[in-house]
Amino acid sequence: MRNHVEERQRWMAVLARASCQELEQAYSDLSDAPPYVWLRPPESGLVLLRGQAGETGTSFNVGEATMTRCALKLADGTMGFAFSLGRDQRQAELAALFDALLQRGGETVSVALKVISELERTQSLRRDLKSRKTASTKVDFFAMTQAREPE
């Protein structure tokens, strides 16, 4: 049970980080998009962001962020949910649809897992590129103080 929950959390994180264009492309690649009804149509609102200084620091309010949530149900009764940062309602809709597809049995699961793995790979490449760009600007202050001329 725990393994399935962790796997679903990973899928949901990948779907939440995916752009609307990536999800639209994956949706257009589906051979047969299933019909669905809304349990909760996409709606945008604010969430409070909390921060913490260090592992033992006191929590504090950082600010607010816009997010969109929705829930849908496929014809076979499978439900899909999505929460994403921003106000893109189509992104949340597609993420919820893929969440529902990942919970179904049969061939649609393998198609949805292929989409998730491709999105995850793309996101990993983006993260690595961003890390390399950030690392290239790193300044070693200890080395700078050691290189200083004695007075």
Rank of each mutant, 00 (worst) to 15 (best):
P42G: 06
L39F: 04
G54K: 14
F60H: 12
A71Y: 01
L49H: 04
G63M: 02
R50N: 11
G51E: 04
S59C: 08
W38G: 06
W38E: 08
G63E: 11
P35M: 00
S44F: 12
L39P: 02
G77L: 06
P34A: 07
L46K: 11
W38Y: 12
C70H: 13
G51S: 03
L72Q: 12
G54A: 13
V47M: 10
G51D: 12
P41R: 05
A71H: 10
E64T: 06
S44Q: 14
D76T: 05
P34E: 02
L49M: 13
F60L: 10
L39A: 06
P42W: 08
E43W: 02
V37T: 11
A75S: 14
A65H: 07
L74P: 01
W38L: 05
S44C: 15
A75C: 02
R40H: 09
M67Y: 12
P41C: 07
A53Y: 10
D76E: 08
W38K: 03
E55M: 09
G54N: 13
F60I: 04
F60D: 01
E55G: 15
V62P: 02
A75W: 02
L46Q: 13
M79I: 10
R40A: 09
T78A: 06
M79R: 09
P35T: 04
E55W: 02
N61D: 14
A75H: 08
P41D: 14
E43Q: 14
T66D: 10
N61E: 10
M79C: 10
L72E: 01
P42V: 05
